[in-house]
Protein backbone atom coordinates (compact mmCIF):
# COMPACT_ATOMS: atom_id res chain seq x y z
CA UNK A 1 0.00 0.00 0.00
CA UNK A 2 1.21 3.45 -0.83
CA UNK A 3 0.73 5.95 1.96
CA UNK A 4 2.96 9.03 2.02
CA UNK A 5 1.23 10.63 4.98
CA UNK A 6 3.18 11.38 8.14
CA UNK A 7 1.77 12.53 11.46
CA UNK A 8 3.75 15.67 12.25
CA UNK A 9 5.81 18.41 10.67
CA UNK A 10 8.79 17.12 12.69
CA UNK A 11 8.48 13.71 11.01
CA UNK A 12 8.01 15.42 7.68
CA UNK A 13 11.37 17.24 7.78
CA UNK A 14 13.26 14.40 9.48
CA UNK A 15 16.51 13.60 7.69
CA UNK A 16 17.23 17.04 6.23
CA UNK A 17 20.99 17.07 6.71
CA UNK A 18 23.68 19.71 7.12
CA UNK A 19 24.74 21.07 3.74
CA UNK A 20 21.56 19.95 1.95
CA UNK A 21 20.09 21.90 -0.93
CA UNK A 22 16.49 22.72 -0.04
CA UNK A 23 13.97 24.22 -2.45
CA UNK A 24 11.24 26.14 -0.61
CA UNK A 25 8.02 26.98 -2.46
CA UNK A 26 6.28 30.32 -2.30
CA UNK A 27 6.29 33.76 -3.87
CA UNK A 28 6.27 36.17 -0.98
CA UNK A 29 3.86 34.61 1.49
CA UNK A 30 1.68 32.93 -1.14
CA UNK A 31 2.54 29.23 -1.00
CA UNK A 32 5.19 29.63 1.69
CA UNK A 33 5.21 26.41 3.78
CA UNK A 34 5.77 28.21 7.06
CA UNK A 35 5.01 25.27 9.35
CA UNK A 36 7.56 23.09 7.50
CA UNK A 37 10.15 25.89 7.64
CA UNK A 38 9.61 26.26 11.39
CA UNK A 39 10.02 22.49 11.76
CA UNK A 40 13.31 22.81 9.87
CA UNK A 41 14.38 25.50 12.36
CA UNK A 42 13.52 23.09 15.19
CA UNK A 43 15.53 20.35 13.46
CA UNK A 44 18.52 22.68 13.25
CA UNK A 45 20.17 21.50 10.01
CA UNK A 46 22.89 23.98 9.02
CA UNK A 47 24.87 25.14 5.96
CA UNK A 48 21.79 24.77 3.82
CA UNK A 49 21.63 26.02 0.25
CA UNK A 50 18.10 27.38 -0.09
CA UNK A 51 16.29 27.99 -3.37
CA UNK A 52 13.34 30.42 -3.10
CA UNK A 53 12.22 33.39 -5.15
CA UNK A 54 12.64 35.76 -2.19
CA UNK A 55 14.25 35.90 1.24
CA UNK A 56 11.33 35.99 3.62
CA UNK A 57 9.63 38.67 5.62
CA UNK A 58 9.85 39.90 9.21
CA UNK A 59 11.33 37.34 11.62
CA UNK A 60 9.26 34.24 10.78
CA UNK A 61 9.34 31.54 8.13
CA UNK A 62 12.22 31.77 5.66
CA UNK A 63 13.55 35.00 7.22
CA UNK A 64 13.72 33.20 10.58
CA UNK A 65 15.56 30.24 9.03
CA UNK A 66 18.12 32.67 7.60
CA UNK A 67 18.29 34.67 10.84
CA UNK A 68 18.96 31.42 12.72
CA UNK A 69 22.13 31.13 10.59
CA UNK A 70 21.12 27.79 9.06
CA UNK A 71 21.54 29.02 5.48
CA UNK A 72 24.95 29.45 3.88
CA UNK A 73 23.70 30.37 0.41
CA UNK A 74 20.51 31.67 -1.19
CA UNK A 75 19.60 31.08 -4.83
CA UNK A 76 16.86 33.57 -5.66
CA UNK A 77 15.62 36.32 -7.98
CA UNK A 78 14.50 39.05 -5.59
CA UNK A 79 16.30 39.17 -2.22
CA UNK A 80 14.64 42.37 -1.04
CA UNK A 81 11.60 42.71 1.19
CA UNK A 82 10.23 45.97 2.51
CA UNK A 83 9.95 44.71 6.06
CA UNK A 84 12.99 42.48 6.47
CA UNK A 85 16.61 43.31 7.12
CA UNK A 86 17.59 39.75 8.04
CA UNK A 87 19.16 38.83 4.71
CA UNK A 88 20.76 42.25 3.98
CA UNK A 89 22.43 42.29 7.41
CA UNK A 90 24.00 38.84 6.92
CA UNK A 91 24.88 39.63 3.30
CA UNK A 92 26.68 42.85 4.20
CA UNK A 93 28.62 41.01 6.92
CA UNK A 94 29.67 38.43 4.31
CA UNK A 95 27.96 35.66 6.27
CA UNK A 96 25.66 34.46 3.48
CA UNK A 97 26.25 33.88 -0.21
CA UNK A 98 23.83 35.00 -2.92
CA UNK A 99 23.32 33.55 -6.38
CA UNK A 100 21.03 35.99 -8.16
CA UNK A 101 19.00 34.41 -10.97
CA UNK A 102 16.35 36.04 -13.18
CA UNK A 103 12.96 34.75 -12.06
CA UNK A 104 12.06 32.94 -15.28
CA UNK A 105 15.51 31.42 -15.54
CA UNK A 106 15.18 30.26 -11.94
CA UNK A 107 11.84 28.62 -12.74
CA UNK A 108 13.15 26.97 -15.90
CA UNK A 109 16.34 25.76 -14.18
CA UNK A 110 14.15 24.06 -11.57
CA UNK A 111 11.81 22.62 -14.23
CA UNK A 112 14.78 21.38 -16.25
CA UNK A 113 16.36 19.83 -13.17
CA UNK A 114 13.19 17.90 -12.48
CA UNK A 115 12.80 16.88 -16.13
CA UNK A 116 16.29 15.44 -16.55
CA UNK A 117 17.57 18.32 -18.68
CA UNK A 118 21.10 19.30 -17.57
CA UNK A 119 21.16 22.70 -19.29
CA UNK A 120 19.33 24.92 -21.75
CA UNK A 121 19.76 28.18 -23.67
CA UNK A 122 17.71 31.31 -22.95
CA UNK A 123 17.73 34.87 -24.27
CA UNK A 124 17.06 36.16 -20.76
CA UNK A 125 19.99 38.20 -19.33
CA UNK A 126 22.02 38.25 -22.56
CA UNK A 127 24.17 41.40 -22.53
CA UNK A 128 23.72 41.92 -18.77
CA UNK A 129 25.98 41.28 -15.77
CA UNK A 130 24.00 38.11 -14.96
CA UNK A 131 25.25 36.47 -18.18
CA UNK A 132 28.91 37.25 -17.53
CA UNK A 133 31.24 34.22 -17.75
CA UNK A 134 28.44 32.09 -19.19
CA UNK A 135 28.53 30.39 -22.56
CA UNK A 136 26.63 32.30 -25.27
CA UNK A 137 25.49 30.70 -28.51
CA UNK A 138 23.71 32.13 -31.51
CA UNK A 139 20.60 30.42 -32.88
CA UNK A 140 18.86 31.87 -35.94
CA UNK A 141 20.58 35.22 -35.50
CA UNK A 142 19.89 35.73 -31.80
CA UNK A 143 22.21 35.22 -28.82
CA UNK A 144 21.25 32.90 -25.98
CA UNK A 145 23.00 32.13 -22.71
CA UNK A 146 23.56 28.62 -21.35
CA UNK A 147 21.91 27.96 -17.99
CA UNK A 148 22.10 24.77 -15.94
CA UNK A 149 19.24 22.76 -14.51
CA UNK A 150 18.84 22.89 -10.76
CA UNK A 151 18.12 19.92 -8.49
CA UNK A 152 17.71 19.66 -4.74
CA UNK A 153 17.97 17.15 -1.95
CA UNK A 154 14.65 18.29 -0.51
CA UNK A 155 11.69 20.45 -1.51
CA UNK A 156 9.25 22.00 0.98
CA UNK A 157 5.93 22.71 -0.70
CA UNK A 158 2.51 23.92 0.45
CA UNK A 159 -0.71 22.82 -1.24
CA UNK A 160 -4.45 23.01 -0.63
CA UNK A 161 -5.48 19.35 -0.93
CA UNK A 162 -3.61 16.06 -1.14
CA UNK A 163 -4.42 12.34 -1.15
CA UNK A 164 -2.22 9.56 0.22
CA UNK A 165 -0.65 9.00 -3.21
CA UNK A 166 0.63 12.57 -3.11
CA UNK A 167 -1.63 13.95 -5.83
CA UNK A 168 -1.84 17.68 -5.18
CA UNK A 169 -3.94 20.72 -6.01
CA UNK A 170 -2.99 24.23 -4.93
CA UNK A 171 -4.69 27.50 -3.92
CA UNK A 172 -4.65 30.30 -6.53
CA UNK A 173 -1.27 32.07 -6.84
CA UNK A 174 0.13 29.92 -4.03
CA UNK A 175 0.91 27.34 -6.72
CA UNK A 176 3.90 29.32 -8.12
CA UNK A 177 7.09 27.26 -7.65
CA UNK A 178 5.44 24.27 -5.89
CA UNK A 179 4.85 21.92 -8.85
CA UNK A 180 8.32 22.38 -10.39
CA UNK A 181 10.15 22.14 -7.06
CA UNK A 182 8.26 18.92 -6.33
CA UNK A 183 9.72 17.55 -9.59
CA UNK A 184 13.28 18.71 -8.92
CA UNK A 185 13.93 17.31 -5.43
CA UNK A 186 15.01 13.84 -4.33
CA UNK A 187 12.64 14.09 -1.39
CA UNK A 188 9.55 16.28 -1.73
CA UNK A 189 7.85 17.18 1.52
CA UNK A 190 4.36 18.67 1.32
CA UNK A 191 2.16 20.40 3.84
CA UNK A 192 -1.48 20.25 2.81
CA UNK A 193 -4.43 22.21 4.10
CA UNK A 194 -6.69 19.19 3.71
CA UNK A 195 -6.31 15.49 3.19
CA UNK A 196 -8.77 13.72 0.89
CA UNK A 197 -9.41 10.13 -0.14
CA UNK A 198 -7.72 8.70 -3.21
CA UNK A 199 -10.04 9.35 -6.15
CA UNK A 200 -11.62 12.41 -4.61
CA UNK A 201 -9.55 14.84 -6.67
CA UNK A 202 -10.72 14.69 -10.27
CA UNK A 203 -7.84 13.17 -12.26
CA UNK A 204 -8.32 15.91 -14.87
CA UNK A 205 -7.44 18.68 -12.42
CA UNK A 206 -4.54 17.16 -10.45
CA UNK A 207 -1.68 19.66 -10.74
CA UNK A 208 1.14 17.63 -9.19
CA UNK A 209 0.86 13.87 -9.80
CA UNK A 210 1.81 11.81 -6.74
CA UNK A 211 4.98 10.39 -8.32
CA UNK A 212 6.71 13.70 -7.49
CA UNK A 213 5.77 13.63 -3.80
CA UNK A 214 7.35 11.68 -0.93
CA UNK A 215 5.87 12.90 2.35
CA UNK A 216 2.60 14.65 3.20
CA UNK A 217 1.64 16.28 6.47
CA UNK A 218 -1.68 17.96 7.11
CA UNK A 219 -1.58 21.51 8.47
CA UNK A 220 -5.27 22.28 8.56
CA UNK A 221 -5.09 25.97 9.40
CA UNK A 222 -1.76 27.28 8.18
CA UNK A 223 -0.64 30.65 9.52
CA UNK A 224 -0.26 33.54 7.12
CA UNK A 225 3.18 35.12 7.10
CA UNK A 226 1.80 38.68 6.81
CA UNK A 227 -0.33 38.21 9.92
CA UNK A 228 2.64 36.93 11.94
CA UNK A 229 4.75 39.85 10.69
CA UNK A 230 2.01 42.37 11.53
CA UNK A 231 1.75 40.87 15.01
CA UNK A 232 5.51 41.26 15.47
CA UNK A 233 5.98 37.52 15.93
CA UNK A 234 9.37 35.82 15.83
CA UNK A 235 10.50 32.20 15.52
CA UNK A 236 11.71 30.25 17.38
Amino acid sequence: MIDKRVDSVAQAVDGIFNGATVMIGGFGEAGSPIELIHALIDLGAKDLIVVNNNNGSGHVGLAALIENEQVSKMICSFPRTANSTVFPDLYHRGDIELELVPQGTLAERIRAGGAGIPAFYTATAVGTPLAEAKEVRNFDGRDYVLEQGLKADFALVKCARADRYGNLVYNKTARNFGPIMAMAANTTIVQTGAQVEVGEIDAEIIVTPGIFVDRIVTVANPVHESRLVNDGRTYP
Binding site: F27, G28, E29, A30, G31, N53, Q103, G104, L106, A107, E108, I110, R111, Y170, N171, K172, T173, A174, R175, N176, F177, G178, P179, I180, V207, H224, E225, S226, R227
Partner: peptide
Protein backbone atom coordinates in the same frame (compact mmCIF):
# COMPACT_ATOMS: atom_id res chain seq x y z
CA UNK B 1 -9.45 38.83 -0.49
CA UNK B 2 -6.95 36.01 -0.05
CA UNK B 3 -3.30 36.39 1.04
CA UNK B 4 -2.55 33.69 -1.54
CA UNK B 5 -4.09 35.67 -4.43
CA UNK B 6 -1.48 38.33 -5.12
CA UNK B 7 0.29 40.10 -7.97
CA UNK B 8 4.00 40.33 -8.75
CA UNK B 9 4.23 43.29 -6.35
CA UNK B 10 2.86 40.96 -3.64
CA UNK B 11 -0.33 43.01 -3.32
CA UNK B 12 -3.67 41.24 -3.00
CA UNK B 13 -5.63 41.22 -6.25
CA UNK B 14 -8.70 39.53 -7.71
CA UNK B 15 -9.19 37.16 -10.62
CA UNK B 16 -11.71 37.87 -13.39
CA UNK B 17 -14.20 35.23 -14.56
CA UNK B 18 -12.25 33.20 -17.10
CA UNK B 19 -8.94 33.65 -15.29
CA UNK B 20 -6.40 30.82 -15.11
CA UNK B 21 -3.74 29.87 -12.54
CA UNK B 22 -0.51 28.12 -13.47
CA UNK B 23 2.94 27.37 -12.10
CA UNK B 24 6.03 29.53 -12.53
CA UNK B 25 7.61 27.60 -15.41
CA UNK B 26 4.39 27.90 -17.43
CA UNK B 27 4.11 31.57 -16.51
CA UNK B 28 7.58 32.32 -17.84
Amino acid sequence: EDPELINAGKKQVSAIPGAAYFHHADSF
